[in-house]
Design a protein around this nucleic acid. Structure first.
Lengths: 256, 256
DNA sequence: AAAATAGTGTCTTTAAGACAATATATT
DNA sequence: AATATATTGTCTTAAAGACACTATTTT
């Protein structure tokens, strides 16, 4: 730019400008499949991701992350929320910015800089959507399966990055709550963590969470109006204590 | 977009497209000021940020984060590295993506989506730059001071976000090494952490780091060729053991 | 000797880790 | 009664936390 520029002389057309700034959303959910035969047992859980099948050039017919171009009147974050709502009917869920993808040539339509988000959605939200969606072009895939597919654009890279991020956040924050009902048992929480982070294993898990001073406050026992503990025997013969997350934000440090 | 589109019919000019996608960089450094009078003593350290004074519309005369428009032939990350190198002469430093800033109206030049990065730079890198730079439009400010200034665009918000992020990373990763020389004493490390995170305080700091199983491996004692411990009496009458970071990446979890 | 930073000894409390044992309701 | 999950008991070892004490070299 020349140093003579001012408001009236400034002309953005002098420079090559991007051809678009879309938001793409990696929507994770955890499905729970109850075992056949046995009535009371822990379900098999699987981490899944929502993909759409593209109808248009480029990558027509291929599976891709849902998303779309952002508009001048909204932030990228608002675009992501709007696209998520438009394409899947899902609102009011935890959605977080992931990264920007700007490798030259990543989109054959031109210079298109994509902003990726990830969303964690309780399975129940997506069930509604599936019922109302008669098109065959929106589907849940297991993450493992999706990573082996030829996804459109650089969406496999985005998915890999999102998976890494969610794994990290699962262990360092309380986002597990986004996959869980308000009230849950310890084995549900444990399973959710393991579904996202397969090699997670903690001996004496319940004890550490409930009786360790420094971790106390992350979750608490649910009690009824009379102060009696609320239990659930959804998964087990012996009823298990129900817990819920508090709004305490744990702070981690490698130095303490 | 109509569903008849294909490679030959696709025309990005049909849609309103962004007017630019710059990268802005928050360059942090820690300065060390040795106390007058006393020869051997711990210096006073301060977290500082590099700002430039704008010459052109918009925000002419105001201080801003260094940065500039990204080009079609590079990733945003490469733009950030290039701008950092061009504007400050600093290469080969730790630089990390922070966030995207896209609030409508944030830039009077049009629809301009900015990508913020932060860099952690050892003071010695910037001294070179200051010597070679005779213009009065590049300067270090203490972060506290900078946050009280009227910065151009939404740069105060960006600076606030960057500070939060660096504070978090200071405690959860080994980025302290970016501010330190290869070999450092425990009090230097402790001071660097405290400079970034003012309320950091750990009793028995050395002990926890060096004799706790789970934290062993983050740093190690420096020894000479004969295996004798290397010491420094730069800051103290009694020489202190020198340490260095290993390449061990600590993993944190709220559940273990 | 005083100053300034570095580092150790020791004791108490808290938490981690292992693993056997008991509890409870269902099939 | 066998089953499946939930929870407690108990013992050992590791780490946190407090705080007084010793060490080293310059001023």
């Amino acid at each position: 730019m020349s140093s003579q520029e001012n408001e009236s002389s400034y002309n953005p057309r002098k420079y090559r400008t991007p051809d678009g700034a879309p938001a793409d959303i990696v929507i994770f959910t955890i499905t729970a499949q109850t075992k056949q035969g046995i009535k009371k047992s822990l379900p098999v859980r699987e981490l899944q991701v929502l993909l759409i099948q593209r109808k248009q050039w480029p990558f027509a017919g291929q599976w891709a992350l849902p998303g779309g171009f952002s508009q001048e009147t909204e932030t990228i974050y608002e675009s992501a929320r709007r696209e998520l709502s438009e394409e899947t009917g899902v609102d009011d869920v935890h959605i977080e910015y992931l990264n920007v993808y700007s490798t030259p040539g990543r989109d054959p339509r031109g210079w298109i800089i994509s902003h990726a988000f990830f969303a964690l959605v309780n399975e129940t939200y997506l069930e509604k959507r599936h019922a109302s969606d008669d098109a065959a072009d929106v589907r849940l895939f297991s993450v493992q399966e999706a990573l082996e597919m030829e996804l459109a654009f650089d969406h496999r890279i985005i998915l890999q990055d999102a998976l890494m991020k969610v794994r990290e956040k699962m262990l360092t924050t309380t986002i597990a709550k986004e996959f869980l009902p308000k009230r849950f048992t310890m084995s549900e929480l444990y399973q959710v963590i393991q579904t996202v982070v397969p090699d997670f294993e903690e001996k004496n898990f319940i004890r550490k969470i409930t009786s360790t001073q420094s971790r106390k406050g992350i979750i608490e026992e649910v009690k009824d109006a009379d102060g009696k503990p609320l239990m659930s025997n959804k998964y087990s013969q012996r009823a298990a204590q129900l817990y819920c997350f508090t709004d305490y934000v744990p702070k981690l440090s490698i130095y303490s």
